[in-house]
Nucleic acid binder design. Structure first.
Lengths: 238, 238
DNA sequence: TAGTGGTCTAGACCACGCA
DNA sequence: GCGTGGTCTAGACCACTAG
């Protein structure tokens, strides 16, 4: 019975079309699962799968008894992927290099605790790195790693792998919080060789693993040399 | 049997735990659906639902014959939601106001075509707005609306609703592309009353509906007054 | 109370892709 | 081949909730 496209996909695509074209504006009631099952001559479970996916994607809202309705669009949302700096530089066709400019183990200071959102002051590793594209400054990195969460960072050299890439390999999975803002270049960014007050994009990222703070990083990109791009489409097609 | 948590959720949570804790590092093979069904004493369809969700969230990768394996973490990704400016201002506890500073209908110039990614020069509506929080400049908006896609914009007054909110109501659903960068304040932003060279966060958004360009907007926020925050967690719980 | 979605079952057949 | 996931079925019972 499944020539090419699965039934649940076809049902989903058909409903998506109705919504995206405006035929079914927000608030429109979608036929009940049993109705759709009759229409498409399939089992209710198959319809259920299609509608569940549409709900997960935020196109419809499902309620018992009253049925499924088309949702109002989320104002603006996007899946933003902040890539590995090395991959980013190389994708742009430049040669990537980086060097660690500063490295220090210390007991977390008060600012350190704030950056990592630590309760108690643990031992931390503070790093500063300069990332280069074709030997020209590309990005400045200030990083703090909790040695309580990642004790093995103490002895890592970071000569072959930048701290960010190294951490991905060491800490299995994590939750993260990003903060994106604009700042003016100052003396602390002298390695970027920018004119004073050059606008820069600042990306801060705080990472946890199983509730435990792992790292905080602040990446500074010269504003004219970098932009974050994100896309959003209601139909993610799986 | 299902007093509290559905079986598929429990299976999913159990596997998530294994992955997040590092017990099952990337590359680990996950038991086959039939095995898990036996373990949890449930039907294979129930296990399938759990694993399908995990795959959709990017925690595992599923392959026929060889089975499901734990994926390497995506380097950094986040769901970024760019909110309605009005909601944003009011959420911060300020009174929101805005005014249209400029409004002009014209045939698309070459820069207009680039901004909207138009093939042919159609008629467009160009708008500039100032958004205020407690009567202080908060955000500057430069917008272009394709009158080919949204002809009714020609006669919209935008007195009660900002162009962004109005569009949400008029254009049913849309895909969007965002571009975030840092720029320096210049004369064109005089309405924001900033010192020259103040760093600003620039958010550009291009919107389509069914392949047709709808609008392009450029929002400028003083860098010290604004930041975008995004969260990412592997377990989105739905 | 009745309609709707949420979940689950115990089968089934097929397509894919490693051996 | 043959094990795996992908899909589908024709039922079932329950929870929620609008009328």
């Amino acid at each position: 019975m499944n020539r090419a496209i699965p039934i649940h996909r076809r049902i989903r695509a058909a409903i998506e079309d109705k919504i995206l074209s405006g035929d079914w504006p927000p608030g429109t009631r979608i036929p009940a699962e049993t109705e759709l099952a009759a229409t498409y001559n399939c089992a209710r479970m198959t319809v259920n799968k299609a509608l569940t996916e549409l709900a997960a994607d935020g196109l419809i809202e499902r309620r018992r008894k009253s049925g499924s309705v088309v949702k109002r669009p989320v104002l603006q949302s996007a899946v933003l992927e902040i890539h590995d700096i090395k991959a980013e530089v190389e994708a742009a066709g430049f040669a990537y290099r980086y060097r660690v400019e500063k490295r220090k183990v210390r007991n977390a200071t008060r600012p350190d605790c704030e950056r990592l959102q630590l309760e108690a002051p643990v031992s931390v590793l503070a790093l500063s790195c300069l990332h280069l594209a074709d030997d020209r400054p590309f990005c400045w990195e200030d990083r703090l790693i909790s040695l309580s969460a990642v004790p093995q960072a103490h002895d890592a050299s970071f000569t072959h792998q930048s701290p960010g890439a190294w951490l991905i390999d060491e800490v299995p999975w994590s939750a993260a919080e990003h903060r994106i803002s604009a700042v003016a270049a100052d003396a602390s960014l002298s390695a970027l060789q920018l004119a004073p007050n050059t606008p820069c994009l600042a990306i801060e990222r705080r990472t946890w693993n199983a509730e435990e703070p792992v790292t905080h990083v602040r990446l500074i990109y010269p504003g004219d040399a970098h932009a974050l791009v994100a896309r959003f489409a209601p139909s993610k097609a799986g």
